[in-house]
């Protein structure tokens, strides 16, 4: 894997420390990746996948419900690493519309993992991808016990 990516750095000026973990892959996106699914593109709109019985609305409540259906519970904006737990952070734009999800890295404290749209996936800090490009800021963090 290359060490740096000019395209990412141009879009995320605050991203100073990151690692590229995988190549471009059209099959899955950030929401799927945070749900540990690398086989489908998740979004609450056909023809993309959305968990059954979860409202297909592009709002934070639906995205929270999506991860709750996977066993996650809200923990407000507590991004600190907690042993025995895995966490997901949902990003929202200034209108509160979900844009992105990242999952906490359980191997490297303080770091998170994101699949960047159809682009590559990286290991990064939350601050590194916050506030810029089209991702906005963290709207909510959820956690569940590691299985």
């Amino acid at each position: 894997m290359p060490v740096r990516d000019a395209y990412i750095e141009s879009r995320f000026p605050q991203l100073t420390s990151y690692k590229i973990k995988s190549p471009i892959d059209d099959k899955y996106n950030c929401i799927a990746f945070a749900a540990n699914d690398n086989t489908k593109w998740w979004w609450p709109k056909a023809p993309f996948y959305w968990p059954p019985d979860i409202p297909e609305k592009e709002d934070l409540d639906s995205f929270v419900a999506c991860y709750k259906s996977l066993g996650y519970k809200e923990c407000r904006l507590n991004s600190k690493f907690e042993k025995g737990y895995e966490k997901v952070a949902i990003f929202v734009d200034p209108n509160g519309i979900p844009t992105h999800a990242a999952k906490q890295d359980t191997d490297v404290k303080g770091f998170w993992k994101s699949k960047l749209g159809r682009y590559i996936d990286i290991e990064h800090t939350l601050k590194g991808i916050s506030g810029t490009y089209s991702y906005g800021n963290v709207g909510v963090i959820l956690k569940r016990k590691v299985k």
Binding site: N29, W43, G117, Y119
Partner: peptide
């Protein structure tokens, strides 16, 4: 412009 965007709406 949309390489890293997940939302089809966006």
């Amino acid at each position: 412009d949309c390489m890293m965007i997940s939302s089809p709406t966006q």
